[in-house]
Design a protein around this nucleic acid. Structure first.
Lengths: 267, 267
DNA sequence: TTGCTCCTCACGTCACGTGAGGTGGC
DNA sequence: TTGCTCCTCACGTCACGTGAGGTGGC
């Protein structure tokens, strides 16, 4: 037995504003069980209250309305739960990132940054297995992980690798926060490729190089230092920026990134 | 010695998109040091890179541009640091709230909620010292704390209190997420008042009452249960919702909220 | 010289909030 | 009957993103 409620009563019981409730009706997220055809008055049922509570919590977590609807509409309960758990995990990652950002900001403002040591390097032309894609800024880390996994699978057990996991980033990728990225692994000999993977040749080039330890989101520090270094010495040139992802031999949990900024020529 | 950079170069060094940089120029948050009067080309200086890094981190924390500008413009470094620390503390509170919301959502979805025991209560007319204000939804907890503190100060050492810290919430407060809230403390005898405080008389009324333990943000559970209870029994009537804030005598850290939902008459 | 970078409008997006102006329900 | 609740537009907000259409720099 479910009793009918006016939008005002429903608002009090759910702690959602009347404007929000009308909006959720407009977009079909939480339509009232009944609308008076003459007056347009909305009538909600008491058993819609728990649904509204769930929506409110998802909104507190900034889940987009569209996604909330997908979650609520999932026919299969298992499907629904999977979607929810995925979002919760995503949120928890977000929490960690936020905490890291707070820490990073504190460090930045305390000005405790030591000047970073830039070095020059000439890199020979190399052959590589690669995966090339249009990548969105926020999806980069996930894309890169999956692409490098795929490449590792292509290599299989064959011992042809002759360099670390790497990637090339186009200028557009930085300017528009969406653009071509190429994940690659340098190889000694040609091997058969399949799926997304292809064989490419990367031309020789000179770089200013800086090693970065820490989170991806902190890489702007290295980029700022490198760009400044190169600009001050008028070494700038065109070409994609290259990153090498290195793992310590002693401790495989310790990883770092080498950022390689293309320059005219090593002075 | 600071070198000039094009917007594209600056974008790569700061990891801010070109569109974002133009926007930050438009709103005066991060204007380039130089704009070519003929072409409109923006030129940034290398020493603007660290500022951009700070802006990027604040944006990752969802600080509004206006507030970032205030922080960066603060003449006094102490002023600036105070503003930053305030925001960081705010963020850390947010983190905790988000974690609580995730937990709460999990509980809700697991449907582990036991039905909440509603009771009836007639409350006599009472005299009270009160503070009345238009309160915004998100500022409620802070406002309430400050108002109840003020009221405690008005009471001073005089032993006239005859009930717990309480508040009245208007319908508008729920419907529009902004409206009149009255914080009050019931008293036995009249006392002199000053400042925001006033003496009021609260008429007798009947209520459906439900006790809530836990966070403020979880109160919608109690409201949903009470509203449903009242609607099913057709007991609804007008009048502000009343909350009592109780503290355990044994453990002063343990607090809970009684939500009192006005009804016609105790059956 | 070519194409690449950069420019400025003008409009779109998302989740509501803000009035204006009006009608039904108790 | 009165005022209170509810209704529907239409537009605003915030921080950019999305083209369109065009010009300067190497």
């Amino acid at each position: 037995m479910s009793v009918l409620l006016s939008i005002g009563e429903f608002s009090q019981m759910t702690h959602l504003s009347v404007k929000a409730l009308r909006h959720y009706d407009d977009v079909g997220l939480l339509p009232p069980v009944e609308v008076d055809p003459a007056t347009g008055y909305r009538r909600y049922a008491t058993d819609q209250v728990p649904v509204a509570h769930v929506i409110r919590r998802f909104r507190d977590l900034d889940m987009p309305l569209e996604q909330i609807r997908t979650v609520l509409d999932a026919r299969d309960v298992a499907d629904r739960d999977r979607a929810i758990v995925a979002h919760l995990e995503h949120m928890e990652e977000n929490l960690e990132r936020t905490q890291a950002t707070v820490a990073s900001l504190r460090a930045l403002l305390e000005g405790s940054a030591a000047p970073l040591p830039v070095e020059y390097r000439s890199i020979e032309a190399i052959r590589a297995v690669a995966i090339r894609d249009e990548v969105d800024w926020d999806g980069t880390e996930a894309w890169l992980t999956s692409a490098l996994d795929d490449l590792q699978r292509v290599l299989g057990g064959v011992d042809v690798r002759c360099g670390p996991d790497s990637a090339l980033y186009s200028a557009d990728y930085f300017h528009a926060h969406e653009g071509v990225v190429v994940a690659f692994v340098p190889i000694r000999d040609e091997i058969p490729v399949s799926g997304r993977a292809e064989l490419i040749e990367i031309p020789a080039a000179d770089f200013a190089v800086l090693e970065h330890r820490g989170a991806f989101s902190e890489l702007d520090q290295a980029y700022g230092a490198l760009g400044t270094f190169v600009a001050e010495r008028v070494l700038g040139t065109d070409g994609a920026i290259r990153e090498h992802y290195l793992t310590s031999v002693d401790d495989p949990d310790e990883t770092w990134t080498e950022v390689c900024w293309p320059i005219r020529r090593v002075p």
